[in-house]
């Protein structure tokens, strides 16, 4: 029985090697192509490893488009959305989970209902609003409409509900204000939920293509996703440069993934959130 199980596990291992190969080959191919000369790119049969790695491809991408600027914009936009979302969502969730007021449950249901509305419905009016306020091509225009989603409110409210009331009762007897309870008791106890929400908001916004595409036209305001897309538009088949750009585009995500893999996967299964 044990031998049978071992044989099965090793045959499954072989199967997974093929699967992992298919999953990773595009990454390898991206990297390999990024180091080739254009002549080598079109060589037949395809070469897995370039004869001489041409790191200058990366420098060339950097010199023809403001790549550093795209990365910086993405950091600013995704970072600000994440911080603001965490702040706004945790304040709202505190009211929904810990305070009593008339109409609370109805209002919460209204928030929840908005989760069903696809982003494309609100995208058009939000674009019109941003345009009327002359906020296209600004950080405010990129950030503000993405701060308010009910998901974080919902996630944090569920988490806050699980924190025993005794903790705050003790503080309240000592005369602590509600804001004190929120900031000094509830938030520190909710670090796991807050960090999960932070990681997912950040990754989701980092990968966001549609909204930046809609509100940005100036090159200096582009985020990494539309920077990559417009770079592809300019260098359609210069594959080595395209792949160098793509490598730089995924590098931050991969670093984040390697650091927080366990945590990320735990978060995904906890929340059912799709990056």
């Amino acid at each position: 029985m044990r031998i049978k199980e071992k044989v099965l596990n090793w045959s499954l291992f072989c199967l997974m090697v093929i699967v992992a190969f298919i999953m990773l080959v595009p990454f390898f191919w991206m990297f390999s192509t990024s180091l080739k000369s254009l002549g080598e790119v079109f060589e037949y049969p395809p070469k897995w490893i370039p004869s001489q790695p041409r790191w200058e491809n990366y420098a060339r991408v950097w010199s023809v488009v403001p790549f550093g600027r795209y990365l910086l914009n993405s950091v600013i936009v995704s970072g600000s959305i994440t911080l603001l979302h965490l702040l706004v969502a945790s304040l709202s969730a505190f009211a929904f989970a810990r305070l009593n007021f008339p109409g609370r449950d109805k209002l919460f249901l209204l928030y929840l209902a908005t989760l069903m509305v696809p982003g494309q419905v609100t995208m058009i009016p939000n674009f019109i609003l941003i345009k009327l306020l002359r906020l296209t091509d600004t950080y405010t225009g990129l950030i503000l409409p993405n701060v308010f989603t009910a998901f974080g409110v919902f996630l944090l409210r569920q988490f806050f509900m699980t924190i025993p009331k005794d903790y705050e009762d003790a503080a309240r007897i000592d005369g602590a204000s509600r804001f004190y309870i929120y900031s000094r008791i509830i938030l520190p106890l909710s670090v796991p939920a807050l960090s999960t929400l932070a990681v997912f908001t950040f990754v989701f916004q980092w990968n966001n293509l549609l909204w930046p595409l809609v509100v940005v036209s100036k090159d200096s305001m582009k985020t990494i996703t539309i920077g990559l897309a417009s770079f592809q538009g300019m260098y359609g088949t210069t594959w080595n440069l395209l792949m160098a750009a793509a490598v730089m585009g995924i590098l931050p995500s991969i670093v984040a993934f390697l650091i927080g893999q366990r945590f990320l996967i735990k978060g995904i299964t906890l929340t059912g959130l799709k990056a």
């Binding site: 793509a246 585009g249 990056a275």
Partner: peptide, 16 residues
């Protein structure tokens, strides 16, 4: 290996 593509931007994935 199976999870890695989930977190990268779709734009970059589509380029490769």
């Amino acid at each position: 290996a199976i999870f890695l593509p989930v977190i990268i931007p779709t734009v970059a994935a589509a380029m490769v």
